[in-house]
Nucleic acid binder design. Structure first.
Lengths: 227, 227
DNA sequence: GCTAGGCTTTGACCCTGATCAATTCACGAT
DNA sequence: ATCGTGAATTGATCAGGGTCAAAGCCTAGC
């Protein structure tokens, strides 16, 4: 049917599945499940046994950890096309190291780890894809640790803003935050109050203009110079 | 010859090479190089093109990043048996994301990434090993980010001390720091001064006793209770 | 249109840990 | 034994950003 074909096409564009032939992709599909999450619902909690990994189809997922006294650190915010929890397939103790929650109404596909491992045994190309994905994530985490320890909150926020640029926008650039500021703040390891204050300061310096969830980068070069 | 056989045996105990048969291991060996680094010498710098990965044979290597104004963050300290830079094999831009320096006189084996990839194509088992290693590292990094953002310096230091325990030592436990305190401090993202002060405070509380590079954990339960 | 509840912003204050500076310590070389 | 060098400790001070509290805003639902 058409719906299935559309899904096959969608999967085929996901980096993990790009190397698979139709037969393999069909097998992946057979062990997949669609699932819908209303906004704010938990998908899984840190520590829980893991036997599936996920692909975001629609919506947003946040991955986060909690300290024992309830403070939350957002590790990652995932958007359509992103996969998560694949790396757990290879951990000794197969448990989710973080919790996952839908930020808005979200639709996911989930895949059985065990049967996907079989696919991996057949396709080194896919193994290589997965390793590429893991090394990218690893690098990103290393970067984040550098930023946390060697740079201050303003630096991290400015880097974040510049990363949102649609690419090569020279002068005026508009950004729309599709995620609550408090979540982005936690993602950047900044308190919401501080996040707000930094935006205010950047505005006062004429570097940006903020109107609700829309931010104009008035002086991209000036922002780059802060780094 | 005996020397070669000893080396083969050593490699075979490295997680990455455990699944290889003798023929494959010999091929790995053929593309390996031994290298000796005097204390304090740089092995590679962040940003440099990468075509080899490494195994520590003797000594200690620190992986670190520098901020533009020269501040250093130690990412990892590696000991004999540890491998590093394998994950780079799968990055788009094959450049070292961190710098590597010998802390003491060190001997390494290095392996050619390109020829090791060929081995990986033949051995999914080895691919799986590598992926297990990468997911372990990934998890460690996630943990570190949590600790940096959700916990304070004392917490991180106490966790570090407890991790040094030779395992299941119930009451009295001795730790020897084989690495300068300033390096450990940076590894934990603490300033040397603060590191020293925290040790002093823990001593004052009777939880530990410090004599140079030797630390006695006088009250393991008490330390655990701090967390 | 208006109210309620959740983000966000603003203000006042504080605390952890960084910074700067001086001293002590450890140890290898002379 | 003594000197010199770099690490470690200690003291004094400071600031980035966290915390607590209150007010402002926005939107969904009545």
């Amino acid at each position: 049917m058409d719906a299935d074909q559309a899904l096959l096409d969608e999967l085929h564009r996901v980096y993990l599945f790009e190397e698979l032939d139709d037969a393999q992709l069909t097998r992946v599909l057979r062990n997949s499940q669609r699932c819908s999450l209303p906004a704010k619902s938990l998908l899984f909690e840190a520590g829980q046994p893991a036997d599936r990994f996920y692909l975001v189809h629609k919506g947003q997922i946040k991955l986060f950890t909690l300290s024992m006294d309830g403070d939350e650190k957002v590790m990652e915010i995932l958007y359509p096309g992103d996969t998560f929890a694949e790396a757990i397939m290879f951990m000794q103790a197969k448990r989710y190291p973080v919790s996952a929650q839908a930020l808005v109404d979200t639709e996911l596909y989930s895949f059985d780890m065990k049967s996907f491992r079989k696919i991996l045994e057949e396709s080194q190309q896919t193994c290589f894809r997965l390793m590429a994905g893991m090394s990218r994530r690893l690098h990103a985490r290393i970067n984040e640790i550098s930023n946390l320890t060697l740079h201050n909150a303003t630096y991290r926020l400015v880097v974040f803003l510049l990363e949102q640029l649609p690419e090569d926008a020279i002068e005026l650039a508009e950004i729309h935050l599709s995620t609550p500021k408090s979540v982005i703040a936690s993602r950047l390891s900044i308190q919401p109050e501080t996040f707000s204050r930094i935006l205010t300061r950047l505005s006062a310096n004429g570097l940006i203009a903020v109107k609700g969830n829309d931010i104009s980068l008035l002086d991209v070069q000036g922002l780059r110079d802060l780094l």
